[in-house]
Design a protein around this nucleic acid. Structure first.
Lengths: 319, 319
DNA sequence: GTAGCTATCCAAAACGTTTTGGAAAACGCC
DNA sequence: GGCGTTTTCCAAAACGTTTTGGATAGCTAC
């Protein structure tokens, strides 16, 4: 050991990997598409994952891809060549082909998020319970006295957008409120579309206008706030003000004026759960021994290897 | 080939790596410290790097580390074991030990940023010319008629903070203005400190107060704007307004009210230059053949393997 | 047809570890 | 001291590629 130290010797990773048939490396495969809204959240994750890997002595390989074909080809190559022992798939689309691909290849993997298959238990996953987050938010607004609660969403072509919307519907039922289609605007992305939607909301007859607006994401909430301010409306919880809430707790949320009440994505907990679960799946793959239990505060067990994380309400001045 | 396709065969990466003594993998080693301000910028980079790697058929390994010792140990291991062919070091500190370490190990590497060694040409680097960015900004403000231009900075314990400040000083000279120590506030990080600094600026005698405030980062600019608004001052370029500028063009900059005039970090260009340079160094390492020229719009050649990128002014309504 | 050269082919070596398995050593017991 | 068992030791095999180099085949020119 002394001589090794002196010679600055480190065992060759390639030779080790070859003989042990194991790389101690996992891949992080986000979507990397043009979808800027989801992108900003997944950027947050990389760093936390990298730090989390230290605990398990894993290295983190980040795969980029410009298109759907490229990501699949990439995944095939990375998994097929044995470059990694496991894969974390993020930013899943409703009809994402990656899950099927990975099941076919037979490499250990964990998905962050759910495909459209709402209650899918066929693959290991961790997801933030968006429906629960929105439910908690709507309930909070209801308790504050709001009865006309509008909902603003991005297009329903992502699973999380759907889950969050379902949360809105569920909590309306829980609160004994009727869903009013005129208070729901989905498919919004560009600021202009948000502005148009907000304008429509406040062209409703007097007593039918919303007193609170729940946005499905922080960036929608941001544009909602500006749209309201442009109309000369005040944002906040006070009398004559319109309450606005977001979802994600992106870095800017606290710096808006007024600071945004929102639902915080539990990034650290999510990453920890993803890693714990992936390591479990990888171990189980080689020696079918006893699998350690995965448990964390706020973690709901959906199935054998499926977990949901409760997000947290962050109350600020916008509601 | 048909049979390989049919059997879903992919060559073993480990065996290849072993024989070729080459991994086609590079490491990205950011600081990953607690430094939240720099962190947000480096998160931006990972994704772009991952995409850029595709061009060169490289994989990207992201190393995490919780402390200075850990990052060094990590770097030693990754480089020593031959896990990667080259390393991109980011978020460099003035007295960063990583450069010396990598030089000693003798692995190809590229640094994003400069150590305190202001004109260091002893290792390959790419940096954004912060001084040039601030110079352009001050010159712009001068041309708009501003003569009392204040400067707000984070602590001078990072190289980029120093460079940017030097840019401020240089452009004052260029514009024929005297530096007024009362208009410079450095060492700021927390919102309260920024507020205090702003308050001091506007407790100056009438004609000596600043008409423009150049902040060394977007987050400082954000707190500057709020501090001004709390004092009842209007932010913008108009009459009786205080102009405020930032640096980085973080995602929220465009969404502030008023939208922030700032200096945009050329992320894509930076990543492209880093990769081009690293690939060059790696190739040169093995076969000392002809090295292709690295050239990009806005790229200034500082030395044989040292490049500076001109950042770009983004003019919005805050100035 | 043959000499001299180049192109093709393929079995064997090499890459640097870990695993394997047989031999030697150590141990425990009667 | 001898037998059976366990532990230690170490040379050789294995991991799955790419490289090597000697042999064979293919050309060209006389």
């Amino acid at each position: 050991m002394a001589i090794a130290e002196e010679l600055n010797y480190y065992p060759s990773a390639a030779a080790r990997n070859l003989q042990r048939r194991k790389t101690n490396t996992i891949a992080f495969a986000p979507w990397m598409g043009d979808h800027s809204s989801s992108r900003s959240f997944f950027k947050e994750i990389v760093g936390v994952l990298a730090l989390g890997c230290l605990k398990y002595d894993l290295s983190l390989l980040v795969t980029g891809a410009n298109s759907a074909e490229e990501i699949n080809e990439n995944l095939r190559e990375v998994a097929g060549s044995g470059r990694v022992d496991g894969i974390i798939v993020a930013d899943i689309k409703p009809d994402d082909a990656r899950v099927a691909l990975l099941l076919e290849i037979g490499i250990p993997f964990v998905v962050f998020g759910r495909t459209l298959d709402y209650t899918s238990l066929s693959y290991p996953l961790v997801d933030v319970d968006g429906a629960a987050g929105i439910r908690a938010m709507v309930q909070y607004l209801y308790n504050k006295g709001h009865r006309r609660i509008a909902y603003i969403s991005s297009p329903f072509n992502t699973t999380y957008a759907l889950h969050r919307y379902h949360g809105y519907q569920e909590s309306l039922v829980n609160c004994g409120l009727e869903e009013d289609a005129r208070l729901v605007a989905a498919g919004l992305e560009e600021p202009e579309n948000v502005r148009a939607a907000i304008n429509r909301l406040f062209e409703l007859p007097e007593g039918e206008q919303p007193s609170a607006i729940v946005a499905a994401s922080d960036s929608l909430a941001l544009n909602t706030i500006y749209s309201l301010q442009e109309r000369g409306l005040m944002v906040g919880q006070g009398l004559g003000q319109v309450a606005v809430t977001g979802f994600d707790d992106l870095p800017f949320a606290a710096f808006l004026r007024p600071p945004l009440t929102t639902v915080r994505q539990p990034i650290e907990a999510t990453c920890a759960a993803l890693l714990d679960l992936l390591v479990l799946v990888m171990r189980q793959e080689q020696e079918d021994g006893t699998l350690p239990e995965i448990s964390q505060p706020g973690l709901v067990k959906l199935g054998e290897k499926q977990f949901l994380l409760e997000p947290e309400l962050v109350l600020r001045e916008s509601a």
